[in-house]
């Protein structure tokens, strides 16, 4: 059963418990720091590789002030010529921010896209994460008008998820706009 309380043992026990806990956390933090960094790096690498043509060298993350752009990567071939860009782009979707990785070729053509994070409705807007769906496939090599068909563009929206589709399209448009200014 619990011990009787007095000021000394209360202070002692609280201090001791906090010290021990802090020590344990410190050790675990140091031990896991490397795997956590590695996991994050691997995830970033994988998401970049997914939206760019194979081969070539990928730069460190570069920052940009362009609207909605969190950062971008430049892919170059062996001689230093730019072959593609991977842009991290965020817009507001239906349930919260939608962040995409968009691969864009120097001429402004979309190479491929992938979803980094979102909070869209499961079964509706969240379908934008489904690989090989029509919505996702149409982005590969897309060079048409960046708007959903309802708004007079060339993108077929996901059924019953126009807001998500618009957000997705806007995020891609932001990425393409950045690449166009970079290429100028």
């Amino acid at each position: 059963m619990a011990a009787k309380s007095n000021l000394t043992n209360m202070a002692l026990v609280l201090t001791a418990v906090c010290l021990v806990c802090a020590a344990i956390l410190g050790v675990i933090y140091v031990v896991t720091a490397e795997p956590i960094a590695a996991a994050a790096a691997a995830e970033a690498q994988a998401s970049i590789a997914k939206v760019l043509p194979e081969g070539g060298e990928i730069s460190e993350e570069l920052s940009s002030d362009a609207e909605g752009v969190d950062g971008y990567f430049v892919q170059t071939d062996g001689e230093g010529a730019v072959t593609a860009y991977a842009v991290k782009s965020t817009t507001g979707g239906f349930g919260g921010p939608v962040t995409l990785m968009v691969g864009v070729l120097p001429d402004g053509t979309v190479y491929n896209t992938s979803v980094l994070s979102h909070s869209e409705t499961p079964g509706l807007g969240a379908k934008c994460t489904e690989e090989n769906s029509h919505f996702r496939e149409q982005w590969k090599g897309f060079a048409g008008k960046l708007a959903v068909t309802k708004d007079g563009g060339d993108i077929d929206a996901i059924t019953a998820s126009t807001i998500t589709s618009r957000a997705y399209t806007k995020a891609v448009a932001q990425a393409v706009a950045l690449v166009k200014t970079l290429e100028e």
Binding site: A3, K4, S5, N6, M10, V13, V17
Partner: peptide
Amino acid sequence: IAPIVPDKVHIPV
């Protein structure tokens, strides 16, 4: 640790 934790601070601990 229960036997050595004083009653009054057991919740925070």
